[in-house]
């Protein structure tokens, strides 16, 4: 198992840092899966993390100037590491002005993802900073837990309003209730609702548009075709999970959308050129 990557371009470094920081806001611990072409940050929906799962996919070629890896074996040419994204984020943030940043898998006191950066100086010798982030190597028999989640057979898919707007709404609703109902229909309308004994608040969004998913989007040719455009699909979710998602994101997505499986799950997707981030929040009764 070997891995080494090098980022020289400042914009790439900055972008990568923002992605990692976004991940760090969503979860304390996640799995970093390295394949010859991609990096994945994965959180599988365990009860311990509130059933939330995450899947973030980056194409290595868009970030790394050099990228070399050798997986566990030639058939399983992958590396799976459990990392603390917060540590990665912190390490990357301090080296934003570096001439070059290397990421590599090393064996120090324990397996580490080492971030080594060459910082500019006035002297002839560069200043070098290294951050050793401890990681746990995940054995192959557990890899099946970190496969790409299948696209849920959603009832409604809708584009999200500007995330900042949504964040402001959710932030305020959070003061009133612990749970929020997200509902949307195929007519481009979405509502965010809270209902407590004392108060009911609903924020309405309209003309959001519904993404044109192909036939492959849902298993049986799509319930969407037969669905009444006015009919709302809804899911009641933990408001903190939604807030976390809205607060942490620094990806500035070109597209943000949301799939709702009625009373089952909210599936949020952010797309930005080369990065895709999917976040699943389970519905609660």
């Amino acid at each position: 198992m070997k891995f080494r990557g090098k980022i020289i371009d400042v914009a790439c470094l900055n972008h990568f840092t923002r992605v990692v920081t976004t991940i760090s806001k969503l979860t304390k611990i996640c799995v970093l899966r390295l394949t010859p072409d991609n990096l994945f940050f994965v959180l599988s929906g365990k009860v311990a993390n509130g059933g939330v799962s995450m899947w973030c996919e980056l194409s290595q070629a868009n970030f790394f100037d050099e990228y070399q890896m050798e997986g566990v074996s030639s058939e399983d040419n992958e590396i799976c590491l459990e990392v603390t994204p917060e540590n990665l984020s912190r390490a990357l943030k301090t080296v934003q002005n570096a001439k070059a940043v290397k990421l590599k898998l090393t064996k120090k006191h324990c397996p580490c993802l080492t971030i080594a950066a060459e910082l500019p100086t006035l002297s002839s010798i560069s200043r070098v900073v290294t951050h050793d982030v401890p990681v746990d190597v995940i054995p192959r028999r557990l890899w099946h837990e970190f496969k790409e989640p299948s696209m849920p057979d959603f009832d409604v898919s809708i584009y999200l309003p500007p995330l900042k707007t949504m964040k402001n709404v959710v932030d305020r609703m959070k003061n009133l209730s612990n749970f929020l109902v997200m509902e949307a229909n195929l007519n481009g309308e979405m509502n965010l609702k809270i209902e407590t004994d004392l108060v009911s608040v609903t924020t309405h969004f309209k003309d959001l548009g519904n993404p044109p998913w192909g036939d492959d989007a849902s298993q049986d040719g799509g319930p969407s075709q037969s669905r009444d455009p006015e009919d709302m699909a809804q899911a009641r979710v933990d408001i903190r999970k939604l807030q976390q998602f809205l607060m942490g994101q620094q990806v500035n997505p070109s597209k943000a959308m949301c799939n709702i499986v009625h009373e089952r799950v909210v599936h949020l997707i952010l797309l930005h050129e080369d990065v895709s981030l999917q976040y699943f929040i389970p519905a609660v009764a």
Binding site: T84, N87, R90, A91, K108, H109, C110, C112, T121, L122, S123, S124, I125, R127, V128, V129, T130, H131, D132, V133, P134
Partner: peptide, 16 residues
């Protein structure tokens, strides 16, 4: 704590 903590090391050359 070594297996849990991030270790950071910075190297400065004397001519700095």
């Amino acid at each position: 704590d070594r297996s849990k903590s991030m270790l950071t090391e910075l190297c400065l050359a004397s001519d700095e």
